[in-house]
Computed example of a mutant assay.
Amino acid sequence: MASRTKARVVRLSRSRAKTPTRPRVRDLVEHGRTVVAAEARAIAAVRLDESFAEAVRWILDCKGRVVVTGMGKPGFVAQKISATLASTGTPSLYVHPAEAAHGDLGRIAKDDVVIALSNSGETEEILRLLPALKKIGARIVAVTRDRVNPLARGADLVLAIGNVEEACPLKLAPTASTAVLLAIGDAIAMTVLASRPFDREEYALFHPGGKLGRGLMKVHELMRGAESNPVVREDQPLSAAVAVMTETPGRPGATAVVDAAGKLVGIFTDGDLRRLVEHGETDFARPVSSAMGRNPRTVRPDALVGDAARVLRQARIDQVPVVDAEGRPVGLLDVQDLLAAKIL
């Protein structure tokens, strides 16, 4: 019996010995920092030269598209680089090198610039494409370790990233090298962007679905205009202002107040109406000018919606009149419209 008990104790001790020790939070954070530091060092060590400038010139002069390709982890980086180029005004597409060898080479034309990413420069799927790309006539830019590997020798231009030590504990998984590839791709895209006309309006055109793009919309695209723009004259009675606010399509919670020349002199809102009723001031025959808010904040039709949203937030108001160069109200921007467009 004692022998069996002793054997059981031994088995339990061995079992406990095999249980891995739970890493300390401090150790986990410290290791994470070493990875970030390793990738930062790798990016900082990159030295751009005349080849980088030439690649940018090729893209600026490109009559076709910038085709970006890569296999494995660099392939994901290539997709991001292509997306960044496209979203900032440079026509671009990503082509998977394996799929390219099975027909997708037809996406590439002689006026294109091909950017091929491979740290080793020995990626078989990319090397297989080089003869065909040469026949097509597209220019090939290799972003790779050095200038003597197979990809570099087959390219028209080489951006050498140097011998990058991976942040992986095994020194195998692409980590620091992919960070460098991405940084160079971003450097190319942003240098191209800085070298050609491309403003916030064009950026918004390519980003209609995202919050960034919506914030770059112009006020005239979102405001309530024409018959949806409530307006009363300052000499009209309060009852007319209430009627306009009620009968205007969309039932806005405010109306612009104008003088005889049609220029904005004030605004009357639902809040003004509630305060009148709370104080027993129910003489709706008096002119709206006696109860309107004077010197209201305004925005212009060509202002950015994002800027107009800041006006509403800072002033803590729900509506703002939109006026033209002569000070005439041409629309009304309501906070509900901003919420519906997911600007706020």
Rank of each mutant, 00 (worst) to 15 (best):
S3Q: 14
R4T: 14
A7K: 14
V10Q: 14
L12I: 15
L12P: 00
L12C: 06
S13M: 14
A17H: 07
K18H: 13
T21F: 13
R24F: 15
R26T: 14
E30V: 13
R33G: 15
T34A: 14
V35K: 01
V36T: 15
R41L: 00
R47K: 13
L48S: 09
D49C: 08
S51G: 11
G64R: 10
T69S: 14
M71R: 09
F76P: 06
I81S: 00
A83I: 15
S92A: 11
S92G: 05
L93N: 05
P97H: 04
P97F: 04
L105R: 03
A109T: 09
D112F: 03
V113N: 01
V114Y: 01
N119L: 07
G121T: 02
T123F: 06
E124I: 08
E125H: 12
R128N: 14
L130V: 14
P131H: 11
K135L: 14
V143S: 02
T144I: 04
P150I: 01
I161F: 11
I161G: 00
N163I: 01
E165Y: 02
C168N: 06
L170P: 01
K171C: 07
A173C: 12
A173S: 12
P174D: 08
P174E: 07
A183W: 05
A183R: 04
I184E: 03
A194E: 14
E201P: 00
E201L: 01
Y203D: 02
H207K: 07
H207G: 10
G210H: 11
G215V: 01
M217N: 04
K218D: 08
P230W: 06
D235C: 04
P237F: 11
A240W: 05
E247Y: 05
T248V: 10
T248L: 10
A260P: 02
G262E: 09
D272V: 07
T282I: 12
D283Y: 11
R286P: 00
S289W: 05
V299D: 06
P301R: 03
P301S: 09
D302A: 08
G306D: 13
D307Y: 06
A308Q: 05
V311R: 04
L312C: 09
Q314V: 04
D318V: 08
Q319Y: 10
V320S: 07
V322H: 04
A325C: 05
R328T: 04
L332E: 03
L333S: 03
L333V: 03
D334P: 03
L339K: 07
A341E: 13
